[in-house]
Simulated assay, not measured.
Amino acid sequence: MITDLRYRGASTGKRVFITLSIAVMAGYVLLILYPLMNMVLSSFKTNRAIISTPFALPETFSFATFKTVWVDKGFSHYFANSLFVTTISMTFVLLFGSMASYGISRYIYRGNTLVYMLFLSGIMLPLKAAIIPLFLLIKTLGLINSRWSVILIFLAMGLPSTVFILAGFMKTIPLELEYAAKIDGCNDFMIYRKIVMPMVAPAMALVTIYNAVPIWNDFFFPLVFLQSNSVKTLPVGLSTFFGQHSTNWSLLFTGLSIAILPMLILYLFMSKYFIKGMTAGAVK
């Protein structure tokens, strides 16, 4: 297996392999980026231009459609609702998930394996399959048309994978560090906060992106439980641009361009730790 991809000093065959690898990766990057770039460029076009010349550059770069979407169509409310739901959901997922993972990975008791398997069972059982009893439960709690209804659902969706990932990372932390901290006078909470959590920072970044993107993009649960325009999230708000007889593609592409920004910024800021979390344990 070729692991040294330095071009200088390489043989002719290896240079050909490196060149082909770079060409393939560049083609893959273009394949991924082109639809996104076309979406952003289409937000500056009219409906007629999008349909007649979908691959051409816009004639002018006017931000009038962005103003229309953000102000006139109430997109700022949808954006704020999605930001609130995603932020609160991820805060609870990371807090409760890390605490549960710490208890499962660092404490040994009779029901340890059973508790861990109960969390893992949440990965195999999708909540969408239980939408009817879930709807009755949320209705009984009086949370229909409340943002807290989807927050609780997203919390239940995110905890199993969070516990699965973080518990695996925490089990690799040497127990000697915990013993040394106890000798220095640290209690369990201080060990969790000052020793364990800093060491699993790459895993926390991995869990954040792994859960935040589906929560931000989820359409199904907000559509079922959020009925008022004042509490609808971005994916549901985007559906308002689809008319019965026509679709305003210009406004739709503008809304999509705005919607991808938070997750794009999140990944750019956390990509370093995300890659560390993905590759942790790959090299001994």
Rank of each mutant, 00 (worst) to 15 (best):
R6H: 14
R8I: 00
G9Q: 08
T12N: 09
T12S: 05
T19C: 06
I22A: 11
A23H: 02
A23L: 14
M25G: 02
Y28L: 11
Y28T: 07
L30C: 15
L30S: 12
I32W: 11
L33V: 15
M39F: 01
V40E: 03
S42I: 01
S43L: 10
S43D: 02
F44G: 06
T46F: 09
A49G: 03
A49K: 11
A49T: 09
I51K: 01
F55T: 13
E59L: 01
F61W: 09
F63K: 07
A64R: 10
A64K: 12
F66N: 04
G74D: 07
F75L: 03
S76T: 08
H77D: 11
F79Q: 09
I88P: 00
I88N: 01
V93E: 06
L94Q: 00
M99A: 08
M99V: 08
I104D: 11
Y109M: 09
Y109A: 12
R110Q: 04
R110L: 13
G111P: 04
T113P: 02
L114R: 01
M117E: 06
L118S: 06
G122M: 08
G122R: 11
L125N: 14
P126E: 11
K128Y: 11
P133D: 13
F135P: 04
F135D: 04
F135H: 11
L141N: 10
L141H: 13
L143P: 05
I144Q: 06
I144R: 02
S146K: 02
I151T: 15
L155P: 08
L155G: 08
M157K: 01
G158P: 05
L159G: 02
T162M: 07
L177T: 03
L177C: 04
Y179F: 05
A180D: 11
C186L: 07
M190V: 00
R193C: 07
M197D: 03
A203W: 07
A205C: 07
T208A: 10
A212E: 06
P214N: 03
W216H: 03
F220G: 00
L223P: 03
L226T: 02
L226Y: 08
S228C: 02
N229L: 01
N229R: 10
S230E: 09
S230Q: 07
T233Q: 05
L234D: 06
P235K: 07
G237H: 10
G237I: 02
G237C: 06
L238D: 00
T240Q: 06
G243L: 10
G243M: 13
H245M: 15
N248S: 14
S250V: 03
L251K: 00
T254P: 00
S257Y: 04
I258V: 15
L261E: 06
Y267I: 08
Y267M: 12
K272H: 10
Y273L: 12
K276F: 09
A280H: 05
G281Q: 05
A282V: 08
V283Q: 13
V283E: 12
K284V: 12
